[in-house]
């Protein structure tokens, strides 16, 4: 969906800013909002670009830095941490060849940490583009990643 059509769903009220950003970023395959788009949103709402940028900068689900096609978010909070999360992260780093915070060279995956996914009863857990994967083991992780790799080829 184009930015114009998303904007047209909202009134020109400053209070819609976060919703607009979340909904629009959802449509972007690189999970990021550009400076030009910030300008367009700011103009639509009649606020400064600085204001829009400050909102993006505050929320971890929003980004101005382009990411890979699939964003893998690993939970590392205590309930996952004490349930072998570090082995999960190591596995991911190994098979993707990147560290947390990085994107693979083919722009397919970005690996990052997330705050608690509320899956502590099925720890360790991760999320890929909104889909939760829980009770992870290194083998399970390998299977999930190859499935995503297959999807894009």
């Amino acid at each position: 969906m184009s930015l114009e059509s998303i904007l047209s769903k909202f009134t020109k009220a400053e209070t819609n800013l976060l919703e607009i950003l979340l909904q629009y970023q959802e449509t972007k395959t690189d999970h990021a909002i550009t400076e030009a788009e910030v300008g367009q949103i700011a103009a639509y709402l009649g606020v400064t670009e600085t204001k829009v940028a400050s909102v993006i900068s505050f929320y971890t689900l929003l980004s101005m830095k382009p990411k890979g096609r699939y964003v893998i978010q690993v939970c590392k909070n205590i309930p996952c941490f004490v349930n072998e999360q570090t082995a999960i992260t190591r596995t991911l780093e190994k098979i993707l060849g990147i560290h947390a915070g990085e994107t693979t060279a083919n722009n397919l995956f970005t690996l990052e940490y997330t705050s608690c996914l509320g899956c502590c009863d099925n720890a360790p857990a991760m999320r890929i583009d909104g889909k939760i994967y829980a009770n992870l083991t290194p083998d399970k992780v390998k299977a999930i990643i190859s499935e995503y790799r297959g999807r894009s080829s």
Partner: peptide, 10 residues
């Protein structure tokens, strides 16, 4: 009423 500066990040 200009608003050039803002708190960015956290």
């Amino acid at each position: 009423g200009v608003g050039v500066l803002e708190l960015m990040g956290r």
